[in-house]
Design a protein around this nucleic acid. Structure first.
Lengths: 193, 193
DNA sequence: GCCCAACTAGACCGACCGGTCTACATAATT
DNA sequence: AATTATGTAGACCGGTCGGTCTAGTTGGGC
């Protein structure tokens, strides 16, 4: 299976978003990474960089949903799934010398309300992620599943951010340990109906 | 008291970092906002944009430390202080039509290990913030104060991020409510020595 | 009044940005 | 074999980027 040029472009964009964000990467850099000429970019994505970014965001969203699906399927306790998720993010961060964070976070902060296409793609990706978490938490009887879902996503984003600037996994590890502890305890004390 | 050109430049940079991040703002935009010519920028900050960004980051760090100091001084329970802190961030976000987030977050994600000056400034700002929180939590007998501090910072960063892309305060509000609930409960059940 | 440092002012520069356009290769269609 | 859609290739363009440099202004020390 040979990757199509389109796929290579999207993957290169995802990688770029993880490392530097949308404004941080130039087209030439992107094209070099994807080993594609400019003509191909504008053939597959007539609206240029923005359209490519939207496609990248959508792909990330799809991958996340899929990853959650299999993760929750295999873990009986959603907190175990969450732990694995956070740990794998941490692993990727460490393996890349603290360069690769969340592919959505940087664009999210770089974009404004006027970048409506990008914002729309981001918004629906985040909604999907939160909903997936919420459903699983709810199903297993955790109270305040919506708040917990938003909290875990915040922990992921905020924790990765702190780990990156610190150049260390410690802040994230500690925050994760603390939240898991709090949550398990909470669950234990207010069992499902 | 008239603001000096240097101060106006720093404040303009802080505002820019909150809205769009470092790569997202051009010098011309910055200079227009500060109502200063290019010559002044390079007089006060010979290393240009980067040096100005570092100064902005440092000022944000100082302001944060100061804000925490007075906040914790006035609130007997650190959780109340934390609540006020999170709510004021939310207020600023709403008042700016979801444009103004954390001034450190975007640069944090845009920068890489090679931007060592910026990273150093960011790292020390985050350490200072976490330490301030940790001290207060510890002093009031909360268990795992270090993890809790990192967790609250993550909630702040990750929550603001989610609120921005959602164009709504709901995700952050819910996450805050949930974490406060969990933390209070935890504290109650394991009182200080 | 003179001088010198601090600062303001903006013209100017090369590099690079994202984007367009034409020419060409390739492959499916008939 | 001729034609047509699909995609590759990169020269080229105007605009903007961050940064440099020279000239002028301002105000305090003497």
């Amino acid at each position: 299976m040979t990757k199509t040029t389109r796929d290579k472009l999207i993957d290169a964009m995802i990688d770029a978003l993880q490392r530097r964000g949308l404004h941080g990467v130039g087209l030439s850099e992107l094209l070099a990474a994807a080993d594609a000429p400019k003509g191909s970019l504008y053939h597959h994505f007539p609206n240029g960089k923005t359209e490519l970014a939207v496609a990248a965001i959508e792909r990330v969203g799809q991958r996340a949903e899929q990853a959650f699906a299999t993760l929750f399927e295999r873990q009986s306790d959603p907190l175990d799934a969450l732990t694995i998720w956070l740990q794998s993010a941490l692993g990727q961060l460490q393996d890349s010398a603290f360069e690769r964070g969340c592919p959505l976070a940087t664009v999210a902060l770089e974009s404004g309300p006027q970048d409506h296409e990008i914002r729309a793609a981001l918004a629906s990706a985040f909604v999907a992620i939160r909903q997936a978490l919420q459903q699983q938490l709810q199903r297993h009887g955790y109270p305040q599943p919506e708040g917990l879902a938003a909290l875990f996503v915040a922990l992921y984003e905020g924790g990765l951010l702190q780990a990156r600037v610190a150049g260390s996994s410690e802040p994230l590890k500690q925050a994760v340990a603390t939240l898991l502890h709090l949550t398990r305890q909470h669950r234990t004390e207010s069992p499902p109906a």
